[in-house]
Amino acid sequence: MPPHVAAFTDTYLPTVNGVTYTIRTWRKRWQNRGGRMDVVYPGADAHDPAPGEHPVRSLPFPFYENFHIGAPSVPSAVEDADIVHAHTPFGVGLGGLRLARDIDRPLVASYHTPTSEYAGYLAEGWLLDAVARAGNAYERWFLGRTDHVIAPSETARAALERRGVGPVSVVPNGVDTDRFVPTDATEFRARHDLPAEGTGPLVGYTGRHGFEKRLTDLVAAADGMDATFVLGGDGPARKTLQEEAAERDADVRFLGFLDREELGEFYSALDVFAFPSPVETQGLVALEAMACGTPVVGVNSGALTETIDDGKTGYHYEPGDIAGFRDALGRSLAERDGLSSTCRSRREAMSVEHSVDALAAVYDTVL
C-alpha cells in the first residue's frame, strides 16, 4: 500500500499556476495507485474543498491579487501521515515542517520556484537585491531542515547542490498527456477572433505575466515579424506589456486568463510557443506545448536549457538577444513540421506517470 502523504502548500485552488496543477495531478495519480495524499493549503472562499483537501486560516497577500497567506496550521486529519511533503516554504509550508518534527516523520520538499523570485512583489530599486538575498537565506534554512529535496530538472538540482542543499533528486512535474494532446483548434481560433489556420503563423505564450518572466523581450521580438502574437494569462506586468505592444510594429493580442480546459486547444493553435523566462526550474508550459506538437523557442537560461532540445523540439536564443530571439522564431516557423513531429514522438517520455514513479522512489528512500 502506498504511504499516506500530507502535502503542504502555500498556493492551491482557486489560485491557478504550475504548482497547483502539479499537486492536483500528482494527487490524482497517487490515489489511482491506491494511496492517500491529503492537501493542506490557504483557505479561500472561492474554492469548495473536496475530500482530502484541508484549508487553513489565511489572509489576502496585498502584493499579488488572488494569492493568500496561510497560517502554519496542522489539521488533525493529517496527523497520522507517513510522509510530509512541503511544496512551498512559507506559512503553510512551515506547518508541514512542524508536523514532521512533531510526529517524527520524513519531510520532503519540492523546489518549484526560487524564493528570490518573490522579491519583485515586495520591493523595487535598491531594496530588490536585499530582499532577494534574504529570500535565498531563508530558502537555504528551510531546505536544510528537510530529509530530501525534489527538483523538477537537472539544472535546478545542480543549482541547489552548488548552494550546499542535499540530498536532491530530480522528479519532473510531468505532463498530463491525456489532456495535452494535438487537437483541432479551429473553434478556439474562432472563439478568440484569431486568424484561421493557414492564413498566417501564430506565436504565443501563456502563463503568469510577471516582470521576471521577461515578456517584454517577446513583445520586442514581435516587432516587424509577419506573425500574430497571442499572450494568454494575466499578472502584474500585463499593463506594461500592452503599452509596449501598442508602440511596436506588431500584431500582439492579449487573451487574458484561459480556462485549463482551453489550454490544449491554445497550444495546438500555435505554430510556435515562445518562452523568454530565464527563471524557470523546469518550464511546465513548454512541455505542455510540446505534448500538443508545438515546438518551443526559449531563452538559453535556467531549466529551459534542457527542457528544449535545440534543433529537435525548438531553438534557444541567448538572454537579452532580441535579434537572436526573432531569428530563432523565424527558424522554428520555417522548420515547424519537422520540429512538431519530434515533439509528438516524445510525448510518452513527458508523461506524469513517469514523474509519479520517480516520486514514489523518493518516498521509498526517505522511509
Rank of each mutant, 00 (worst) to 15 (best):
Q242D: 10
Q242I: 04
Q242F: 00
A245M: 07
A245Q: 09
A245I: 02
A245H: 06
E247N: 08
R248A: 14
R248T: 09
D251C: 05
V252W: 00
R253I: 08
R253V: 14
L255R: 11
L255E: 12
G256H: 06
F257D: 12
F257Q: 13
L258I: 04
E261F: 07
E261L: 02
E261M: 07
E261G: 02
E262H: 09
E262I: 10
E265V: 03
F266M: 07
Y267P: 04
S268H: 08
S268W: 09
S268P: 14
A269V: 10
L270M: 14
D271A: 03
D271M: 06
D271I: 13
F273H: 12
F273I: 02
S277M: 06
S277H: 00
P278L: 13
P278M: 12
V279K: 13
V279R: 14
T281K: 08
T281C: 14
T281D: 15
T281M: 15
Q282R: 11
Q282G: 04
G283T: 00
G283D: 09
L284S: 07
L284H: 12
L284K: 14
L284E: 05
V285E: 00
A286M: 13
E288K: 01
M290I: 13
C292F: 09
C292W: 09
P295C: 05
P295D: 05
V296Q: 02
V296D: 00
V297R: 03
V297Y: 12
G298S: 13
G298M: 03
S301M: 08
S301Q: 15
G302T: 07
G302M: 11
A303E: 12
A303N: 07
L304K: 03
E306Q: 09
E306A: 05
D309A: 14
D309G: 08
D310K: 06
D310V: 02
G311Y: 05
G311N: 10
G311L: 13
